[in-house]
Design a protein around this nucleic acid. Sequence first.
DNA 1: AAGAACACCAACCGCCGTTAC
DNA 2: GGTAACGGCGGTTGGTGTTCT
Length: 260
Amino acid sequence: MMMKEDTRKGPWTEQEDLQLMCFVGLFGDRRWDFIAKVSGLNRTGKSCRLRWVNYLHPGLKRGRMTPQEERLVLELHSQWGNRWSRIARRLPGRTDNEIKNYWRTHMRKKAQERKRGLSSPSSSSSSFSPAQGSTSGVSLPESQIMEGSLHDKGVNGDLAVSGDQSEEEVAKVYSMDQIWKEVALMEEDVSSKKVYEGGEGRKEDGMCSLLSPPTPMASPLPWNYYSDALWRMDDQEDIKMWQPTINDHFVSNYGHGLEY
DNA sequence: AAGAACACCAACCGCCGTTAC
DNA sequence: GGTAACGGCGGTTGGTGTTCT
């Protein structure tokens, strides 16, 4: 068959999402080029990966950043600069893209505010005010508020952390435990209300029949649990822990379409 | 009510590091 | 060791929804 001429671009359709989720369930989220080919999606591997990482990944949170998250982003950005993926790793459920977008819009706004503020020196220097104070008084080091910092590579490039060891240390600087406790508490409340809702109109229902544990409702743990666990996984090894159930289930129902 | 301005977010592009051959 | 392919990352753009005038 000769396809593959024009790879599709632009927004993903629901059908494509489903297809992608199925094949990621089957083959894991690493071999993107392979998945792109095998799935029959006329997309590049990159495109598939992006879609998965930024939108379809079951562990993703949606919606506004919590004040804790915002604080964390600011803090980590002050340490690492525009290392979005690195920062994202410290915010489970948030993607580098999301954080990047967040930073751009909010910091740009901040920069503009400050520009104006410079003419009136007594202006509220750092009351971080997307929509005036929705972020519960996150304060930002002056140096970062300047417009230039939107593009620079690390505010304190010199101080910039180097190496993973120091990364670990830095992460603790901000009394991470405290932050996470708060976040956990908040989320516990929320998730207990909407377990399995998929949140924000996500269209997971369709895929759940394929990818969720065989009998989601009968499962002692909600799908969210799997999702969250998955999000934290770094290795393919970990994924294998849960993949078999998906594979069995999926293959038995949809394996007919596969030639591999 | 309509248009402008702004905010948000999904997706693409290009570069770079890693891996496989 | 060289090279091609791939995956990941950061920067950027464009579309859409929301708020403001």
